[in-house]
Design a protein around this nucleic acid. Structure first.
Lengths: 252, 252
DNA sequence: GGGCCAGCTATCATTTCTTCTAGGTGCGGC
DNA sequence: GCCGCACCTAGAAGAAATGATAGCTGGCCC
């Protein structure tokens, strides 16, 4: 199946737009037994105090119409046990929402996950496989394939093809990532102006406000104003804290 | 082959020591056509100024006797084009050191890589596959399988089995990582005392030296001394810079 | 026993940061 | 045309950071 997707060097056609790459990958996944594709990316997986951050990119194929809004706007992403597991592991895994299923998500499911579990059960999306895709630099994506109405035979086939699916996911993500819209590369959790980020970047490199002012050919008061504004937007207590949070959110 | 390595839940026996897990994995890799296993891990892949950092863990099986010393002590790791590529991608890849081979490393090889290329060619280790293993939190490992004296048929078999090898690598690393010696989890590039790290941790959280002193029930002068000592050890210009570097090297 | 290192305390002068107040221009969207 | 935002400049007071000096104890290793 991978052969239909990639060229001789093992890459997806880089000229293909993101949506087309998702479509092609969805087609290839159907041969592995998956009906539904879920692909998401976040440059920063969680806030500085440990809460999951909604993804900056979510692509669905053959999914219920309301799934996008529920995951992005209604907080389902943060309550998704599959995401909770994927965020902390690098190995691909299968999952099942049936009682006593014995997959890794069954060990983490609790009451906070109930809306997601019920929604997926009601939609008949109880079995699937997920490939966590942790990137150099901290960005993080997942590609999930979901079976519809899977029986034991289909599930065994999915487990059997997990390796192929995982490789497909890596190849797809490498190609897709190159076609992201610039907005997907920055977290929406925090937003700073260009000057604020620039001043913080210099501060992170060890320059004082006085030195930054000299470097930018601006007054000290201007630089201090930008640094203080950034500190306030980040909810930081001082400049050290602000820079630490800016690094965390990959704003530098 | 994976079936001989993992239990029903897809995990390696967590009671197995690291060396035994490496041995078992090496055995499984032989079925994929690999004679040599190279496994390495580094909590921090590169210095703050972009140079590669030698791994804190390197395991070899069926490799030349001097390979460990060359990679760890003689700087070969930093000159390894396979490492250079693996550090910046997440997708598994095959590589070949023959002229005009067309694999991804051939596009990055230059004169700085010559010692490594010559050494591997002389050792008959010119074809292999590598699985980059980027972890949540920034740690990074690779599992490499190398064919000895591979011909076109063996190489095609390796490419054909790349998906299975990649899944094996993920499963193995998940198990191996849990059995690391504590020293493998910290970079040797930088070393701070426990108190220095503690004070920097508090500073990163936004506390002033006065507040840290109160929190630790120590004098302000003591805390300032620790913060300044840490700043000096890190080669930082001031406290903001020191905290930024401490975050980079994952000392907090 | 001596040396080295980690950890501790103290003081002082200078520089920098933080907080506050007060004012301006330019641009884009409604 | 108005409003909001980004960016700009300036000054002042108090707090904190930086750099330097000077001294101590305890533990570990040779």
């Amino acid at each position: 199946m991978l052969d239909t997707l990639v060229d001789a060097a093992g890459r997806i056609d880089p000229a293909l737009p993101l949506d087309a790459q998702v479509d092609r990958t969805h087609e290839a996944m159907q041969a592995y037994g998956f009906a539904t594709l879920v692909y998401d990316y976040t440059p920063v997986p969680w806030t500085h105090d440990g809460a999951m951050i909604a993804p900056s990119l979510l692509c669905l194929r053959n999914a219920p119409d309301d799934m996008f809004a529920r995951w992005c706007d209604d907080g389902y992403y943060q309550r998704d046990p599959v995401q909770q597991v994927a965020m902390r592991t690098h190995a691909p895994f299968t999952w099942c929402y049936r009682d006593k299923a014995g997959t890794v998500i069954n060990t983490v499911i609790d009451d906070s996950h109930r809306p997601v579990v019920e929604y997926l059960r009601d939609s008949g999306m109880v079995y699937g496989a997920t490939v966590p895709l942790h990137m150099p630099g901290g960005g993080y994506a997942t590609l999930t394939g979901i079976c519809r109405g899977a029986d034991a035979t289909a599930e065994a086939e999915v487990r059997h093809r997990l390796a192929d699916f995982a490789l497909l996911a890596h190849v797809f993500h490498a190609g897709a990532f190159a076609r992201y819209d610039p907005s997907a590369h920055v977290t929406r959790a925090v937003s700073l102006s260009a000057r604020e980020r620039e001043c913080l970047q210099f501060a992170a490199e060890g320059l004082t406000a006085k030195e930054i002012a000299w470097r930018l050919n601006r007054s000290i008061a201007t630089v201090v104003m930008h640094l203080n504004a950034a500190t306030r937007k980040l909810g930081a207590r001082n400049r050290v804290h602000a820079v630490t949070m800016a690094v965390h959110y990959r704003l530098l």
